[in-house]
Amino acid sequence: MKKHYRSDSNCLNCGTVVNDKYCSSCGQENLELHENFLHLMLHSVGHYFHFESKFFNSLVPLLTKPGHLTKEYFAGRRASHLNPISMYISISILFFFLFTANSNINKKEILKEDAAEEKTITKEEDTGAKNQAKATANAEKTVLAAEPEKEEAPAIKDKITIAGWEVPINDLNAKFREVRHDETKNALFRNKLVSHLPKIMFVLLPLFALILKLVNFRSKKFYAEHLIYSIHVHSFLFLFGSILIALKWLLPFLSGWLLFAGFVVSIWYIYQSMRTIYRSRRWLTVFKFLMLAFAYTFLLLMSGFGMVVATLYTV
């Protein structure tokens, strides 16, 4: 159906003079305000299918053609694809939503198993364990009383430093045991931990790009190009992870195989995308991949450990 365009040449959104159907400044279409219902519906449906077209033009090659979206982006063919950052945010929200739901399901199963194990401990076994502990303590006291006093050994370092913050190891162990055995605090700890993961991953994205730039130091690519590639890689990993979580719910008896397949496919995807973007020889790409994997795994472990410790002290 034919669209009704305004006769006035001023853009209602930004006030710029409109020489054609679209404003050259903000891109708004110069349509009549008072449309009938049919025009309104057709206009909305058209926008929807335009978005849907961009959606499938982005997600299908993201899953099936490693590195393709990055090449398209820097070749200037961007209008037909989703914005990389918007796509990353949308996919990461989906992934962490499913990841949280999956963690809650696993938590319920673990709690049921723990409860079943606790019921198997009889009162006689519990009493025997207490008596054994008392006997051991009395024996230790007797031995200590018989031994001569010795000079105290030098104190062993009992603190670790995380980002300039000293954390007592004994205190950390106590907090961990407390959270582990308290169902409410355990659930709160998991929820807070998962809520911090998107922030950590968003911070690690530019670091991933920086590692790529260092690994490919002979490449003439700008840092922004490495960053866009990093965004596309992480978008794939989160989207593929979302698909695996959904498949695990549908096919729980294949969870082990799905995890293995996810690991293999992820490695293959990153390797193949690096070949596509950086055009290095096979063995050189393998070497770069191993360096990237080592550095990024180290960053993940360090940031993950720091996040766990920080979360422990906030529940």
Results as ranks from 00 to 15, higher is better:
Ser86Phe: 09
Met87Ile: 08
Met87Gln: 06
Tyr88Gln: 04
Tyr88Ala: 02
Tyr88Gly: 03
Ile91Glu: 01
Ile91Arg: 11
Ile91Tyr: 02
Ser92Ala: 04
Ile93Pro: 10
Phe95Pro: 11
Phe95Cys: 10
Phe96Ala: 03
Phe96Asn: 06
Phe97Pro: 05
Phe97Asp: 01
Phe97Asn: 04
Leu98Glu: 03
Phe99Ala: 09
Ala101Glu: 11
Ala101Asp: 11
Ala101Ser: 13
Ala101Lys: 13
Asn102Val: 12
Ser103His: 06
Asn104Phe: 15
Ile105Lys: 11
Ile105Trp: 01
Asn106Lys: 14
Lys108Trp: 09
Glu109Trp: 08
Glu109Val: 06
Glu109Tyr: 09
Ile110His: 01
Leu111Met: 13
Leu111Ala: 14
Leu111Lys: 10
Lys112Val: 06
Lys112Ile: 00
Lys112Met: 09
Lys112Cys: 04
Glu113His: 04
Asp114Phe: 15
Asp114Trp: 15
Ala115Thr: 00
Ala116Met: 06
Ala116Leu: 02
Glu118Val: 07
Thr120Ile: 08
Thr122Leu: 07
Lys123Gln: 08
Glu124Asn: 06
Glu124Phe: 02
Glu125Trp: 00
Glu125Thr: 04
Glu125Ser: 11
Asp126His: 13
Asp126Asn: 11
Thr127Ile: 15
Thr127Arg: 15
Gly128Met: 10
Ala129Gln: 14
Lys130Asp: 12
Asn131Arg: 08
Gln132Phe: 14
Ala133Asn: 10
Ala135Thr: 14
Ala135Arg: 14
Ala137Ile: 13
Ala137Val: 09
Asn138Gln: 14
Ala139Thr: 05
Glu140Thr: 10
Val143Asp: 13
Val143Met: 10
Ala145Asp: 04
Ala145Gly: 03
Ala145Gln: 12
Ala145Tyr: 12
Ala146Cys: 03
Ala146Asp: 08
Glu149Asp: 11
Glu149Ile: 10
Glu149Tyr: 07
Glu149Gly: 04
Glu151Cys: 02
Glu152Ile: 03
Pro154Ser: 01
Ala155Trp: 09
Ile156Leu: 01
Lys157Pro: 11
Lys157Leu: 13
Asp158Gln: 04
Asp158Phe: 01
Thr161Pro: 06
Ile162His: 06
Ile162Arg: 03
Ala163His: 00
Ala163Gly: 02
Gly164Ser: 01
Trp165Phe: 13
Trp165Glu: 13
Val167Ala: 03
Val167Cys: 06
